[in-house]
Simulated scan of single mutants.
Amino acid sequence: MSERARRRRIGVEIWIVLGLSLGKSGVYALVNIVARLTEGTPLADQSTALNVSRSARPYLDLTYQLLSIGFALVPVALALYLLSANGRSAVRRIGLDRARPLRDLGVGFGLAALIGLPGLGLYVVGRAVGITVEVQAAALNAAWWTVPVLLLSALQNALLEEVVVVGYLMERLREMRWRAPAIVVTSALLRGSYHLYQGIGPFVGNVVMGLVFAEYYRRRRRTMPLVVAHTVLDVVAFVGYALIPVEWREALGIR
């Protein structure tokens, strides 16, 4: 196979993987933000909810939640499968293994702190200037399984985004001989795109997060610390926000 044909094949593969996962989410988010901006209601007066209940019956709701989490991980399995086509372990290739657990945990928590605190500040500023919608981080009905499902959802988000947007995409673009800055920026813009439904502020914040995470991967070739960091950020957003006093949540625009 010629080099040109190989690159074309990789390009088609990338479009398929993204079309089945976060690329599709990015397109829907773009349409959503256009709809929000043109409906006549300011972004500051609009809201969105994450982790919503799917049924009033608790065990049926639990079934739907687990199915949603499970099927959302299929693109992760696909990306890892494709990266292992040459017989090399995909998890070792992108640093998703447990080769250095303590260091990965330390770096992950450090990245979470580096991204999380400024991200919260950006959210508050975005709400104040009217470029960010009100985000309800968890809208599940209260049940014994609510917190475990939120933890699983946080892990699922982390695996999906870090494996597909960082590990898989950056490896494939590198094989296509893209330059490092273009790879890093593309990964970051993709990350920002599927958060557009939350407003302009979250888009900018996630692009910045994407730049940091992609550059870390470019230098270290490990996604495990990124998965740790992303999981911590989502756990705090999904579960921890409930511990914030009501008056603080109202001031931050969180229900």
Rank of each mutant, 00 (worst) to 15 (best):
Val129Pro: 03
Tyr81Ser: 13
Glu161Leu: 05
Ser2His: 07
Ala79Tyr: 07
Met170Asn: 03
Arg103Lys: 12
Ser55Gln: 08
Thr231Tyr: 00
Ala242Phe: 01
Arg220Cys: 00
Val91Tyr: 01
Gly119Gln: 12
Arg88Gly: 05
Arg174Pro: 02
Gly192Asn: 04
Trp15Cys: 14
Glu3Val: 12
Thr38Met: 02
Thr38Gln: 05
Leu111Ser: 05
Arg127Met: 07
Gly253Trp: 11
Leu159Gln: 10
Ala139Lys: 13
Lys24Phe: 15
Ala214Lys: 14
Glu39Arg: 12
Glu134Thr: 09
Val239Cys: 06
Arg4Cys: 11
Thr186Trp: 02
Gly23Arg: 12
Ala138Met: 02
Val124Glu: 13
Val27Arg: 13
Gly199Leu: 00
Val165Pro: 01
Val149His: 02
Leu30Trp: 01
Gly121Phe: 00
Val228Tyr: 00
Leu252Thr: 14
Val166Asp: 00
Ala72Met: 09
Gly210Pro: 03
Ala214Glu: 01
Ile115His: 11
Pro202Asp: 01
Val164Pro: 07
Val212Arg: 09
Gly40Ala: 00
Leu96Phe: 09
Ser55Gly: 09
Val164Tyr: 00
Ser68Glu: 14
Tyr28Glu: 03
Arg98His: 13
Trp248Asn: 08
Leu226Glu: 05
Val235Asp: 02
Ile244Asn: 02
Leu22Glu: 04
Glu161Phe: 03
Glu134Trp: 05
Pro245Arg: 06
Phe238Glu: 10
Val207Cys: 11
Leu190Gly: 04
Val76Ala: 02
Thr231Lys: 06
Ile183Asp: 05
Tyr217Pro: 05
Leu120Pro: 04
His230Cys: 05
Thr231Trp: 03
Leu122Met: 13
Arg179Lys: 14
Ile254Ser: 04
Ile69Leu: 11
Ala44Ser: 12
Ala158Trp: 00
Leu211Lys: 10
Gly11Asp: 12
Gly121His: 03
Val228Asn: 08
Ala143Trp: 00
Arg172Lys: 15
Leu67Ile: 13
Pro101Glu: 15
Val212Glu: 12
Leu66Arg: 12
Ala138Tyr: 11
Leu60Cys: 03
Val31Arg: 13
Met170Arg: 07
Ala137Gly: 08
Leu226Met: 07
Trp248Met: 10
Gly119Ser: 08
Ile200Val: 12
Val227Arg: 11
Val107Ser: 04
Trp178Pro: 06
Glu171Cys: 07
Ala29Ile: 09
Val149Gly: 01
Glu171Gly: 07
Arg177Pro: 02
Gln46Pro: 11
Tyr64Trp: 07
Leu120Gly: 14
Val239Met: 07
Val12Cys: 08
Leu18Tyr: 03
Leu20Ile: 15
Met209Val: 15
Met170Ala: 03
Ala35Cys: 07
Arg220Lys: 14
Trp144His: 07
Ala99Pro: 02
Leu30Asp: 06
Leu96Glu: 10
Leu22Cys: 05
Leu196Gln: 07
Ala182Arg: 10
Gly210Asp: 04
Ser21Thr: 14
Gly40Asp: 01
Arg174Leu: 01
